[in-house]
């Protein structure tokens, strides 16, 4: 139990640092900006209580906002992401399987499930984030393009990090 807490705490700090000091400076053709920090919410254990999940999403959003100078923007997107995560997991995962599947990682859940999971959640998060930032319907076409390209970049980074920490012995 305490091991899970330490691992998630470390993951939180490392992901915020990567996002703020490395990925914040990366943009492809002014269109595609990766937001890898949402990986923290994606990888929280299955059994986490809903209240704790929302609190963590809120804190993560505030931490990113503090560095991006956009109070509330990433927070709203992260809270939405937490809600979509709860819905997605309740639809696709059976409750009985929780004992031997503590975390929704790539090595435990398999490529197909994890890819859909990451793609759907990232699309929701990015769609909401970019539209909240622009807040104008007149630029919707351009915003949607940015949403799709940025999501592809983020999902790519999530899969790469999933493969980096791939533990083959855990797979059955």
């Amino acid at each position: 139990m305490s091991r899970t807490i330490i691992i998630n705490l470390l993951r939180f700090i490392v992901l915020v640092f990567i996002q703020v000091f490395l990925l914040k400076n990366i943009t492809l053709y002014n269109l595609s900006t990766p937001y890898l920090y949402i990986l923290f919410i994606l990888l929280l254990p299955f059994e986490i209580p809903n209240l704790l999940l929302f609190v963590l999403a809120f804190i993560l959003g505030l931490a990113i906002d503090a560095f991006y100078d956009t109070p509330g923007l990433h927070t709203t997107a992260c809270v939405l992401l937490a809600f979509v995560r709860i819905l997605f997991i309740s639809i696709t995962v059976q409750k009985e399987g929780f004992d031997n599947e503590p975390e929704p990682t790539l090595s435990i859940m398999g490529f197909r499930w994890f890819f859909t999971y990451a793609l759907v959640l990232t699309l929701f998060h990015h769609f909401f984030l970019f539209n909240m930032e622009v807040f104008r319907f007149s630029e919707i076409q351009y915003t949607l393009g940015r949403v799709v390209l940025s999501s592809l970049f983020t999902v790519f980074l999530i899969l790469v990090s999933g493969l980096l920490f791939y533990k083959s012995k855990e797979r059955k």
């Binding site: 209240l51 929302f54 906002d65 503090a66 109070p71 923007l73 927070t75 939405l80």
Partner: peptide, 28 residues
Amino acid sequence: FLFIIFEVSALVIYIKYNSFQKATFINS
């Protein structure tokens, strides 16, 4: 219901800051 509570509080922070450029402690 938890989603509604947290989302509304986040939106309040966002909109308040944006319309008045108020002095908040959450910035660089």
